[in-house]
Write a protein that binds this DNA or RNA. Structure first.
Lengths: 157, 157
DNA sequence: GCAACGAAGTTTAATAATGCAACCAACTGG
DNA sequence: CCAGTTGGTTGCATTATTAAACTTCGTTGC
């Protein structure tokens, strides 16, 4: 099948999908952000074949989304927890959730809502803001070529 | 192989992935949101096999993400444009983009930045806010069971 | 300390999804 | 009406996914 890799693509959306855009990775990340840590927990929750889970966990670790930590309950097994890079995926999960909440044809089948821990009230919708605070829709944005990186003034001496 | 469908899942993240979570759909949606409309444009931009593009466009239309419109340049061909449901995916694309901008190991390979059309300045990061305006991180949120829907008071007479 | 059990993987074989390339039909331009 | 383009289909090879059996430990129970 030779799934064409997007790793070298210059589009940041494609680059993100190349890292965790396959069928299971985002669900594993979702589970991890819900606090699941053990191989068996993921397997029971997702119902995917164990070999697939093995390879997914491995590549997510390789790519710095997850890391393995020695134990936690004292047993000699390992657990999988999100790295900062992995925690950074949280807004993507929120965006996916909110899209479903707004557009799903059967919203009654959605089991949970996201609330803020303090007040217990539903969170607001993600908003894209300009630097002066206006709310932006897709039509209010454009893409510009990325400006050249500031080069370090002098590498040595 | 029977790729396990997530359509009946109660998790809104899984439900979204079931709609456009495959390898190409989000990239097609990205292209559509950049203004590409023609079969040939998508094919040239994405470099995917034409049969795959055919099936993807068809399912995206079936699912209400895209719709076909008769022409635009007068020719008798059809074009594919986003529905409101499709435009609603925009925040997800932004979230993916911003994740790459923040965490990619080779940010120098990113070609474009998103700016607001008016001022030409980079947009701010998507923020998740509570109803009283606090910025929430993943740890500041919880999931609650969805409250029962308000039932229509009386269906007939 | 030894047997049974379970958790975490690996291996294997069958099957479904994907990719590639060639083919086809309709439309366009002259 | 003929050549080229657009949009799409069909077949075949390749790869991913799955389920189930098997391995390899660690963890009890005794």
């Amino acid at each position: 099948m030779k799934r064409t890799s997007l790793a070298g693509d210059s589009c940041p959306v494609a680059r993100a999908l190349d890292v965790f855009g396959d069928w299971w990775s985002l669900l594993i990340i979702r589970d991890a952000s819900l606090g699941r840590r053990r191989f068996g927990e993921f397997q029971a929750s997702l119902g995917l074949a164990k070999n697939i889970l093995t390879t997914r966990l491995r590549t997510l670790v390789e790519r710095g989304i997850l890391k393995t930590v020695p134990a936690s309950d004292g047993s000699a097994y390992q657990e999988y927890v999100l790295t900062p890079k992995g925690h950074g995926i949280f807004p993507i999960l929120v965006a996916l959730r909110q899209w479903t909440e707004e557009f799903d044809d059967h919203p009654d089948e959605i089991a949970t809502i996201m609330v803020d821990r303090d007040k217990g009230k539903p969170v607001k919708k993600l908003a894209l803001l300009s630097q002066d605070g206006r709310v932006l829709g897709a039509a209010d944005t454009t893409l510009k070529p990325r400006p050249a990186v500031k080069r370090a003034r002098r590498v040595s001496a």
